[in-house]
Design a protein around this nucleic acid. Structure first.
Length: 593
RNA sequence: GUGCCCGUAGCUCAGCUGGACAGAGCAGCAGCCUUCUAAGCUGCUGGUCGGGGGUUCGAAUCCCUCCGGGCACGCCA
């Protein structure tokens, strides 16, 4: 039950009755039913009269005055008024709001499930980090955002595939193979000296070298690269992916599908896709101009090459498909890859990318539009940089010096739930500061603990009940039968109304593809719960305590509210991939100032 | 030079895809625990929403332009 949705449907019926022509023409998408920011405007308001007035060229007030006659008769509506310039503000019966609690308790973790997705197939591709090294913090942002987005879309009724694209072809993998070979020699006692430039210096490759040395012994020493490169390439990629998957699992992330770029190429997927475009007449041989600007490459040499006509689909310039050595560009293989998703049945292809890939969005949108004849849509969610700080000071990271911080290190220090939650406290296209000191701070300005604390408090009330008031004989199964009309305090009603907007939050966050909204919503729920909790603690309002030993019915109703808060927080945290805690644990070491 | 993102209170950021006098947290000041974890709550102070135009009944939100910051710009992925 979603009171906003119920109201919306009734409203649409009324509009269809009064102004059939306006209704049938469709295009009433701008009509909104929302919770006003200020409660003095009621529980629920709509701009319907303003939209219809514009459409039919009638004064909005006049439209509103007609609509109000219908709205008055809606079951849940207690009062409705027209306010300039034509808003309709409604107050709903308190009992209608209270019934939401019954619904929440009955629905439990399904509360807020929506059907707006209508089972549409959406593919969410995220992480897709190169298998050349361990994950670091920037990857984690994409990982968490992608994973939460997938969960959110699932809750909103989409059919979601979570996918990881393994870039296991191309020059970087050869670098990986060469670098691993160095470590292999090292493992067998060869003095390799300093790692030369052009090789990956990371210590993590020692494991790869050692593993191959253990497996194959001295077999590859003094052999020609063309013999050992394929072996090292394959083995190193496999080990790196194992490493990455382990980290992802520790972050609580499990993809449905890992797709290999190499396999795509080997099975002719790229040739097929390019042939497809060729048939459409979108491939030609041409010469690109050097990019204008101060930093034009000095070794630029104009040469004829195979190009895709992406400018016909909104891109700024046509894009090359083959490198000078004849192999495919990344763009070419990615066209084929996106096309393969489409052929598997996905119509919306969401890609969670880092900011450094932002420049590639247009060309892939163009390519997907072309190759699927507009049957599928390519979308990118761009994650901006993550700045790692400690005590407000940037943590120095340098790949060259090998001092970049891995995701594993961060997780070991602050824990999985903190990483996940913090990554969702900013919208994805804004830069994010990740301060190792602040994120484990235990105070209100750390949303992780603030929300967790609220949840823990909902649990502690139960513990308290079982331990100190066994004579009340209240069982969780009794909650749906609670007399919800015993909840009358303003703080209680405010909280109930907030819980009632959860389905709306899920839908709007899913439509906007913005999982961070869940985090902000939970923060608000937590706040309202803390308010109520504190109110019951004070001397003046001690009648607002959740547990009132001499009034079982009041206690039961309040516990129903507390329980509902717990459900909603758990629903939200589930989307975020954060484990709700039932009890807060005091840190032994306090954080310094 | 071009494209994308950002610019909201002293600081860090929300603002529900055009709505009703711009919201939180932190910092500052003043308060609240004999009973459900004070990791909490309450009040006060604080903003020409970067500047300027435009569209609209209505703009932080959409369009144009300028300023300031970030990212990226054949044959890397």
């Amino acid at each position: 039950m979603d009171l906003f949705r119920v109201f919306y449907h009734q409203l649409m019926k009324s509009i269809a009755l009064i102004w059939p022509q306006a209704y049938q023409s469709g295009d009433l998408g701008a009509v909104q039913v929302e919770q006003p920011r200020d409660s003095k405007f009621g529980d629920l308001s709509t701009n319907a009269a303003l939209i219809i007035g514009k459409k039919l060229r009638l004064p909005p007030i006049e439209v509103a005055n007609k609509l109000i006659q219908h709205i008055k008769t809606y079951d849940d509506v207690a009062a409705v008024e027209v306010v300039a310039p034509g808003f309709l503000n409604c107050r709903l019966h308190e009992q209608s709001w209270r019934q939401v609690l019954h619904h929440i308790i009955k629905s439990d973790m399904n509360y807020g499930d929506s059907q707006i997705g209508q089972g549409q197939h959406i593919n969410v591709e995220y992480v897709s980090a190169n298998p050349t090294g361990p994950l670091h913090l920037a990857h984690a942002r994409g990982a968490v955002v992608g994973d939460a987005l997938a969960s959110l879309l699932l809750k909103a009724g989409y059919h979601v595939t979570k996918e990881y694209y393994i870039n296991d072809a191309g020059a970087q993998v050869d670098v990986l193979a060469n670098s691993s070979y160095l470590r292999y020699q090292e493992a067998l006692g060869v003095d390799i000296g300093e790692i030369p430039s052009g090789y990956y210096p990371g210590e993590y490759l020692k494991d790869v070298g050692a593993a191959i040395a253990k497996k194959d012994g001295r077999r590859w020493l003094n052999q020609s690269p063309k013999d050992w490169v394929p072996v090292f390439r394959q083995y190193a990629v496999q080990m790196m992916m194992q490493n990455i998957k382990t980290d992802l699992l520790e972050l609580g992330i499990k993809h449905d599908l890992f797709s290999s770029e190499k396999a795509l190429i080997d099975t002719g997927g790229v040739d097929q896709a390019i042939a497809e475009l060729e048939k459409m007449g979108l491939i030609y041989t041409g010469i690109l101009e050097a990019p204008k600007g101060t930093k034009a490459p000095e070794d630029w040499e104009p040469r004829p090459q195979m190009l895709f006509r992406s400018t016909s689909f909104g891109d700024d310039v046509d894009r090359p498909l083959r490198k000078s050595d004849g192999s495919w560009t990344y763009f070419a293989t990615d066209i084929a890859y996106q096309f393969s998703k489409f052929r598997r049945g996905d119509k919306v292809l969401i890609n969670v990318w880092g900011a450094d890939h932002a420049g590639y969005v247009k060309r892939l949108q163009a390519a997907v539009a072309a190759i699927t004849a507009n049957q599928a849509r390519f979308e990118a969610r761009i994650c901006q940089m993550v700045r790692l700080l400690r005590d407000g000071q940037p943590v120095k990271m340098s790949k060259r010096a090998g001092t970049f911080v891995t995701l594993r290190e961060v997780m070991d220090e602050v824990g999985r739930d903190v990483v996940r939650f913090i990554m969702l406290t900013r919208k994805n296209d804004a830069p994010l500061d990740f301060d190792l000191t602040k994120v484990i701070d235990q105070s209100r300005d750390n949303p992780v603990y603030y929300v967790q604390y609220a949840h823990a408090r909902t649990c502690s009330v139960w513990r308290r009940l079982k331990k100190d008031f066994p004579q009340l004989l209240i069982d969780e199964r009794d909650l749906p039968k609670a007399q919800f009309n015993r909840l009358t305090d303003e703080a209680e009603m405010t909280l109930i109304k907030m819980l009632g907007t959860w389905p709306k939050v899920v839908e709007s966050a899913a439509q906007a593809q913005e999982p961070h909204r869940i985090a902000y919503y939970l923060y608000e729920v937590a706040h309202l719960f803390h308010v109520l909790y504190t109110k019951g603690k004070g001397k003046d309002e001690s009648n607002l305590r959740f547990i009132v030993p001499e009034q079982t019915d009041v206690t039961l109703a309040r516990l129903a509210l507390v329980h509902s808060v717990g459900i909603v927080i758990r629903c939200g945290l589930k989307i975020m991939g954060v484990e709700p805690v039932t009890e807060m644990q005091y840190e032994s070491s306090t954080t310094s100032l």
